[in-house]
Design a protein around this nucleic acid. Structure first.
Lengths: 186, 186
DNA sequence: CGACGTCGGAACGCAACCGTATCGTCGTCA
DNA sequence: TGACGACGATACGGTTGCGTTCCGACGTCG
């Protein structure tokens, strides 16, 4: 009989807190405070900070993204990049992702949850694109799929999250073209 | 008249602590404990955790890497990837880099120090490789240099740090070939 | 030899959270 | 209408780190 609105307020507060101070500094007290809720309400639902975050990450992982299908490799890449870069522009995502990613280096459970989310998200979509290109004959059959995925996903992540530089007009198109060329060269 | 051996012990302890628990959880007490030193010795040298870390990051940034020069784009890339992947294999690097990178999203001073280190390290070397390729005529003149750098550095970082998967034999060679093709297509 | 400054160690009061327990209140069902 | 359970609030003792202060020991200069 837990109240759903309270649960939702906590979930939202966790995201905000995660973005604001990061996993390490995040406290149950802080979450409850931000959610306008008693600590009791939080502990009644999750046993610890870790369980809370794992639950949220898993929930996100469930939302499977649709694979683009424009009929060409470059078109698919372009679409993927547009969706991805829009997602990474959200402050919450751009703060939370690197934070959890760093935490994953220390906590195997977070690492696993993140891997799963990655596999069902970015990784899965990229895989679909590559396989469609292979089926279409645009990419040689028998390519190293893992390498192909790194080529597809790496540059935009590096630019958006690591370098944190703006994406000038035309960037995504050029990136899609260059990546397409790289895949065809495999 | 600060004793240099004490200073060095503290520096080493900071790296270990940073790798073990991360910037957020790292405490002056913990550093002093690990270094076998009094808190006094730390505070006498640095005013805060932030100053300490900024100092270390800046120190690393100074070590300029030599630009590879094998005479071909692919050879240069291959060499860069070998050096980079070896560096990223060190546990300290693979724990500390994502951690500071996440922290940079919250702290402009860390972000700036990291940007500088990046520019004088990976970024600088990659830039040298691309320009040499342009001079050699392997890459079209007038390419978007930033995009080129993303193509060069992104995939390996994604694979090593984000996906955290092993690099099978032959991976670096294939990656260099694919990246070369992408650059030539720009 | 004597003065000075750094050393490690210990203690200070203060603040934040931990996870638990105990309030009285309020909404919902039977 | 009465019982139940989740609610926010508050308090608990315990832990950890903050940044500062004082101490006696030691080394190194002058």
């Amino acid at each position: 009989m837990l109240r759903e609105d309270v649960t939702e307020a906590i979930r939202a507060a966790v995201f905000e807190e995660l973005a604001a101070v990061g996993y390490a500094r995040m406290s149950i007290e802080g979450i409850a405070r931000r959610a306008g809720v008693g600590k009791t309400a939080v502990y009644r639902r999750w046993r610890s900070k870790l369980h809370l975050v794992l639950d949220l990450v898993s929930a996100i992982a469930v939302q499977g993204l649709p694979t683009p299908d424009t009929g060409s490799l470059e078109g698919d890449l372009r679409l993927l990049y547009e969706v991805t870069s829009r997602a990474l522009r959200h402050p919450v995502a751009s703060q939370v992702i690197p934070d959890l990613q760093a935490e994953a280096a220390r906590n195997p459970e977070i690492a696993e949850a993140l891997q799963k989310a990655l596999r069902e998200g970015q990784h899965g979509v990229a895989n679909g694109i590559v396989r469609a290109a292979v089926a279409r004959g645009e990419v040689r059959d028998g390519v190293d799929e893992d390498l192909a995925l790194d080529l597809v996903s790496g540059p935009l992540y590096w630019r958006s999250v690591v370098v944190r530089a703006e994406l000038p007009k035309g960037y995504l198109g050029s990136l899609a073209a260059a990546t397409g060329a790289a895949l065809r060269a495999l």
